[in-house]
Amino acid sequence: MFKNISAALGFGGAKVDTILDRNEVVQGGLVSGHVKVIGGNVDQHIDAIIIRLMTKVKQEVDDNIEFVDHVLAEYSVSEPFDAEAKAEYRFEFEFNLHPEAPVTTLAVDNNQCLVWIDTELDIEYAMDASDEDVIHVTPLPVVANIIAKIIDDKDFKLVKADMESGTVSMSGFTNESGAYQEIEFCQNGFFSRGELELTFILKGDTIYGLAEIDRVLRGDSYKSFDISIHASDAEINDLVDYLI
């Protein structure tokens, strides 16, 4: 009886450990690995193993900026099962990274974007065991090339990246996750000071985007666009020239 009560309180209960095959994944790429469950001091019934793909989203609350956990997607890894005391179980999983997950590997000091998976054991009448594992999201080549050309050819500097709460429409497409990434640039030339905020969202073989351009003395302007993930260098050059 004491062991059962302790397990229900989280002491001596089943433990969970998620091992990713790799923790660096390109936008929309495959996330795979396995979940290891180790039984505790007593037998326990596991209703489910749940993996949640998480990010941090910026919200304004009472004039204060807060970063809150946001679920991009949720996956069930197992059917209900009984975890015997001290026994070990292994469950394989794979899924494609949610297409609206932010790029987290941008070379910028003020990078407020984070992606991780939260694995949870759903155990009735017990404190859930959980595990967290960071995923480093790299940009698709077309996105990386657009950013590079803005920096190299247009003399902008990458200054910040974060996830905003809400929806945004681009070329007739609206994001579905309730959050979107903003990548911010600035340009400090004497005759060309300005700021640029870019949003990229992957859907299928297309990158949808929105650019907010703030030019000194010329005000704000918005431009939406879409471009194939297989776009040529010439198409990328034309897009950057159109945006700036």
Score class of each variant (00 low, 15 high):
Asp109Lys: 13
Arg90Ser: 12
Glu94Asn: 14
Val108Asp: 01
Pro99Phe: 05
Glu94Asp: 15
Glu92Leu: 11
Gln112His: 12
Asn110Ile: 10
Arg90Tyr: 14
Ala83Phe: 03
Asn96Met: 14
Phe93Asn: 13
Glu88Val: 15
Tyr89Phe: 13
Ala85Asp: 10
Glu120Leu: 13
Phe93Pro: 08
Tyr89Ala: 09
Gln112Phe: 11
Ala101Ile: 10
Val103Gly: 01
Glu88Met: 14
Thr119Lys: 00
Val108Asn: 00
Thr119Trp: 00
Glu100Tyr: 02
Asn96Val: 08
Gln112Thr: 05
Asn111Gln: 07
Tyr89Ser: 10
Ala85Gly: 09
Glu92Val: 10
Glu88Pro: 05
Leu106His: 08
Asn111Tyr: 07
Val108Phe: 00
Glu84Tyr: 14
Glu100Gln: 14
Phe81Gly: 04
Phe93Leu: 11
Thr105Cys: 10
Thr105Tyr: 09
Phe91Val: 02
Ala107Val: 07
Cys113Val: 02
Glu92Ala: 11
Ala101Arg: 07
Val103Arg: 00
Val103Met: 03
Glu84Thr: 14
Glu92Phe: 10
Val103Glu: 03
Ala83Val: 07
Glu120Tyr: 11
Ala107Glu: 12
Leu121Ala: 07
Asn96Pro: 08
Val103Pro: 00
Asp109Arg: 12
Glu88Thr: 15
Glu92Asn: 13
Val108Met: 02
Arg90Cys: 10
Asn111Met: 04
Ala101Asn: 08
Glu92Asp: 15
Thr104Tyr: 11
Val103Leu: 03
Asn110Lys: 15
Asp109Asn: 13
Ala87His: 15
Thr104Ala: 09
Thr104Asp: 06
Pro102Phe: 04
Glu94Ile: 02
Val115Arg: 00
Phe91Ile: 08
Glu100Asn: 02
Ala83Glu: 06
Pro99Trp: 04
Asn110Leu: 11
Tyr89Gly: 06
Phe95Val: 06
Pro99His: 03
Phe81His: 05
Asn110Tyr: 08
Leu106Phe: 12
Lys86His: 15
Lys86Gln: 15
Pro102Arg: 05
Thr119Glu: 01
Ala83Asp: 09
Leu121Val: 05
Leu114His: 06
Val108Tyr: 04
Phe93Lys: 12
Asn110Glu: 12
Pro102Asp: 06
Pro99Tyr: 02
His98Tyr: 04
Gln112Asp: 10
Thr119Asn: 00
Phe91Asp: 03
Ile117Gly: 01
Asn111His: 05
Asn111Ser: 08
Asp82Ile: 15
Pro102Ser: 08
Arg90Thr: 14
Leu106Gly: 00
Asn111Val: 01
Val108Thr: 03
Tyr89Cys: 07
Lys86Ser: 14
Gln112Glu: 14
Leu114Thr: 03
Pro99Gln: 00
Leu97Gly: 03
